[in-house]
Design a protein around this nucleic acid. Sequence first.
DNA 1: ATGTCGAAATCGTTTCGA
Length: 279
Amino acid sequence: MLIATWNVNSIRTRLDHVKSWLKAIKPDVLCIQETKVDNPLFPKNEFEDIGYEVRFFGQKAYNGVAIISKLPIDDVRTGFCGELKDDSETDIFEAQKRIISALINNIRIINVYVPNGSALGTEKYHYKLKWLKYLKRYIDLIENRGEPICLLGDFNIALESKDIHSPERLTGGIMASELERSELKGIINNRLQDVFRLFEQDTNHWSWWDYRSGAWDRDKGWRIDHIYLSEELVENTKSCLIDKNTRGLIKPSDHAPVLVDINWPPLEEESSEIEFLEY
DNA sequence: ATGTCGAAATCGTTTCGA
């Protein structure tokens, strides 16, 4: 089962790139962020015409997330209120459309667009930290239900020095501060794995290159788009890759897709002992 | 060089967010 995440930076502007990529790679599920379109204007038919179902949670101009899937999409939940119905304070966060989840192949797929946070100490930065605290509670509830978890999206956080092109200059700043990292590590908390790091330990693997400063041409990137899996999925994961080809297209998104290939549902073990006994 | 995008309103140029 091939699952992917891609911050497309406007689905309407990137429609041709996304459709071409789906046709070429044929993932089972693609989770997208920054769709930047209100629900009635989402180009749903464009995906249905090529064999994909879509569920979206969008708004005009900013944010917006969607799940595009060849497999049936069940039990869709949007916003924090989709899980944390008991808490009136979650209303503060519902104005920004940043989280959608669904059950696909009995995996709870949670697609997030974590706030950027602007700059340390700003109102947006505090909003980001608080948003992450709500995400932790959200994941806690799902963990308690026992569903296999695939948490993926644009986290706007580089976890380690090797996830940034110039750690000596960027560490401590926005997307690389101690507080952001500790909130994200708290969510992961021995129950989820950043699967890209199961296969690759080196630096210089980026998922985002700023449009400014010729970042792509100079390969000055960050790895801020992640896929986190719970243990039963990790055990069956075959590979995890970043497809940076898309970043070199004309009018690209500033982010590249990240993909994971999971043997799911896992094949039954050959019960050789029983077969042996039958003979 | 905070050097570029995408979207919307303040509309044919400026603003905001990233």
